[in-house]
């Protein structure tokens, strides 16, 4: 059972690699090299902050775009191209397919983020000619970016299980934007009254709280996320992903593959 999930995940990873998804690393590398050379020359004392902000933001944006646009195609492309027919003709349960696809893309994003993270550290080393113990705090911020990407993947899978690819992309992007301002939504709910308050509160809890997973600024200033916070964020991401995937599976289990 778990083996089949892993086989599907491996194939999804292989598909991403062969479809040249990891080519985004070339653009990222060029960005980092350019930034390191440029800011190494014109910034005095803040080049480290600039590199970290730029590097982690690029990691987040590149990853989110991959998670969204590949995530929405994970199911719909298989149905559209009818590759799913032969897959499901083998002893594969539909939930295994969903879980495998999710795990494959999550793995791709994690590898992508790891390589980008190495790029950020390389750029830091280039501008400062050394790495400090404070730079370890970057790892926590990078880990939280991966958690964000994994949640986006699960959400994209959920939407793609019932909506057309275009609408799934729109929904996922909208949720990503709203989730990035989730703390503002919470603040608005605190100020509102009556039904609006409850609606805003419900929405604030329902959308993924990407704002709480964003440690880019604090990492740039050498402030890392503590182990407890990382553990809580991991648990939050796990619960959100499992819920979204359960929803996707529930829809997909009943779907006729015409």
């Amino acid at each position: 059972m778990i083996r089949r999930v892993l086989y599907i995940a491996h194939n999804t990873f292989r598909e991403a690699v062969r479809d040249r998804v990891l080519y985004n690393l070339v653009i990222f590398a060029l960005l980092m090299i350019g930034a390191a050379i440029l800011f190494g020359q014109i910034s005095v004392g803040i080049e480290r902050i600039v590199i970290i902000n730029l590097g982690l933001s690029a990691m987040s944006i590149f990853g989110a775009l991959i998670a969204m646009f590949i995530g929405i195609g994970l199911v719909s492309k298989e149905i559209e191209k009818r590759t799913l027919y032969t897959l499901l003709a083998h002893p594969v349960r539909r939930w295994e397919f969903i879980a495998g696809k999710f795990a494959g893309l999550a793995g791709t994003l994690a590898v992508n983020a790891c390589l980008m993270g190495m790029g950020v550290y390389a750029a830091l080393w280039y501008v400062a000619h050394r790495l400090t113990s404070g730079d370890v705090s970057l790892l926590g911020a990078m880990y939280c970016i991966v958690l964000q990407l994994v949640i986006i993947t699960a959400v994209a899978l959920l939407f793609s299980s019932f909506a057309s690819p275009v609408m799934a992309a729109v929904y996922t992007f909208a949720l990503f934007v709203i989730g990035s301002f989730d703390q503002d939504l919470h603040a608005f709910a605190g100020l509102a009254h009556g039904a609006t308050r409850w609606l805003a509160m419900a929405a604030a809890y329902a959308v993924p709280n990407f704002a709480s997973l964003n440690f880019i600024s604090s990492a740039a200033h050498g402030i890392g996320a503590g182990p407890k916070l990382l553990a809580l964020n991991s648990a939050y991401a796990a619960v959100y992903c499992v819920t979204a995937l359960a929803g996707a599976t529930a829809v997909f289990e009943r779907r006729n593959l015409k």
């Binding site: 598909e15 590759t83 032969t86 003709a89 002893p91």
Partner: peptide, 18 residues
């Protein structure tokens, strides 16, 4: 378990082209 014992060819099959 049934699918372990049957083989299926869909009409105009299409596979992972990579």
């Amino acid at each position: 378990a049934m699918k372990e014992r049957i083989g299926f060819l869909p009409e105009q099959p299409y596979f992972y082209d990579y």
